[in-house]
Amino acid sequence: MNRNKPELLVTAGSLEEIQMYVKAGADAVNIGENNFGVRMPGNFTTLDIKEAIETAHRLHAKVYVSINNLYHNDDLEALSVYLQQLSEWKVDAVVFGDPAIIMLMKELNIQIPLHWNAEMLSTNYATATYWERKGANRVVLARELNLEEIHDTKRNLQSMEVQVQVHGMTNIYHSRRELLQNYAAHQGKSSVKQDDFSMEKEMYLVEEEREGLQFPIFEDDNGTHVMSAEDICLIEVLDELLEVDLDSLKIEGIMKSAAYNEVVIACYREAIDQYYANPEEYECNPAWLERIKKVQDEHRELTFGFLFKEQVY
């Protein structure tokens, strides 16, 4: 049987990171412009994006641009211009969640491959198929799915590509509210002064009964974002995950150093290549996990995420 190797995708925050990550083994990069993309590891201006696409294409890597916010009326005009530009610059795909993107592309009469990514809301194959009928060629699965759900989803899709996050943190809460600013205002004359709530400030929440778990939190023009306290790391169970051929494995690079991401990419690169060289004989090399652990923040556990969990409701 001829099996297709999945692409190894990583989010990148700068041109330098793109070059580094592709060299380390990434097949594709996911980038964004802060006015249109949310929770990206760094900001690319519109012109940077043009250059990023050219650079990546020279290196034979693909570029997916996130236009993954929930948009308000005032955003729509600029979005149209942006989509037009991305189309001209031959971006490989746009990552979207808001159906406004489909409407705008229809109106502009442009065709860009679309990856449907509604974060925690991309939870079943039938809805993925729905978005495929609307023009999406890939579904980015919610990180809250377990192994069986991931496999069933892929098995139930004919031609739609399936992307799964294999490493890094995930967004667990997005509010349009300026919650950190509001908290600071509420504290008022408190001795604690804070006016910058960006992700660079490295703030985190600790829930009263879950000491030891640090949930990163930041605020930007799109509101307040809370991230997972653990990093997904599926390298040890890659063979189980790949029992069904997936199309893209994503490493989320947000709030990590480039050096960290480089190590992670290199390990997954080796693992994927080794697995596809001979799936039957494949064994996870303990050195990969060791290398990752060496650069891992000691306060953030590496876990299988929801891969082996059963959720109730």
């Binding site: 929930l70 925690m120 809250e144 667990i172 997005h174 509010s175 959720q311």
Partner: peptide, 11 residues
């Protein structure tokens, strides 16, 4: 307080 649905704190 989040965009409705865009929250998996309970999960």
């Amino acid at each position: 307080s989040s965009y409705s649905g865009r929250c998996v704190l309970s999960n």
